[in-house]
Amino acid sequence: MKIRAQALLFDNDGTLVSSLDSVDRCWARWAQEYGITEEFGRVELHGRPAAEIVADLLPAGLVPEALARIEALEVEDVPRGGARLLPGTRDLLDALPAERWAVVTSATRRLAEARLDAVGILPKTMVTADEITRGKPDPEPYLRAARELGVDPARCVVFEDAPAGLAAGRAAGMTTVALTTTHTAEELRADLVVRDLSALSVLVSADGVEISVRG
């Protein structure tokens, strides 16, 4: 299978880097600090903006302070192994011109930059949770990335590991590629499902990018 596109849009956590251990560690501590460990145990964390999670768990008056606290915990955890490259990330990104790809993440810019900097990834274009009004599964983050790259959404490919992110890509009218790094293939609805980015190769030309599944 070959997919042709003008731009590639990557989720970060679970797609380019793994920060699952850090997320679990920091949010568990955060929930304990706020005395909501029981309620927290019923919440889906992955692929959702922190603002949405916090608003679901705490009264509105506590949300700003609680958001700042979880961001601080996660940023402080990065040097302790809070981010590591997933297979295939380096090779695939190194093959792409800077103007052909972007990172689209549910993390804040401060946290996203901390994690990406830790693994040596410096995207020219990045859309973060604090720059949008509606997060995934709304298409706004991916539509904004396409606009910043100057590419028709229909000519973009979204790479995601979470159902909410894939739903955002579909709603934006983009081709979707799912990675089974955090969910099973049965949980992921996409045009193509692969284990991680190491299963893919890219060929860049003046016309765009051709994505192929490695034999």
Rank of each mutant, 00 (worst) to 15 (best):
L200G: 11
V104C: 12
P59R: 03
A102Y: 11
D13V: 12
L149Q: 10
T176S: 02
W101A: 03
A112K: 10
L73W: 00
I121E: 12
K124R: 15
L73P: 06
A185D: 15
F40G: 01
S19Y: 02
A95C: 05
D207F: 03
D207S: 14
F159T: 06
T181P: 01
L58Y: 06
F159Y: 10
P49S: 04
A129R: 02
Y34R: 15
G81M: 05
G120D: 10
D207E: 15
V202K: 04
G35F: 11
P79H: 09
L62R: 09
E74R: 14
R115C: 03
L45D: 06
T37S: 15
A171D: 09
A178L: 05
W27K: 10
A31E: 03
P137R: 04
S19G: 09
A129F: 11
G81V: 00
E71G: 00
T108L: 05
A114E: 02
L93C: 06
A72Y: 00
L203A: 15
T125I: 10
Q32S: 14
V54A: 01
D24P: 05
P153L: 10
L192F: 05
D191R: 05
V127W: 03
P64Y: 02
T175K: 10
A98G: 08
E148F: 11
M126I: 14
P123G: 11
G47N: 10
P64K: 01
V204L: 06
L85C: 08
R134E: 12
S205Y: 11
A167D: 06
L122N: 15
L92E: 10
D77F: 07
A114C: 01
L200Q: 10
D77I: 00
E131G: 06
R214H: 11
V103P: 08
A83T: 07
A167T: 09
A164N: 13
V193K: 02
E113R: 15
K124I: 12
T182Y: 09
A199M: 10
A50P: 00
V119L: 08
E76Y: 14
D138S: 07
T176E: 01
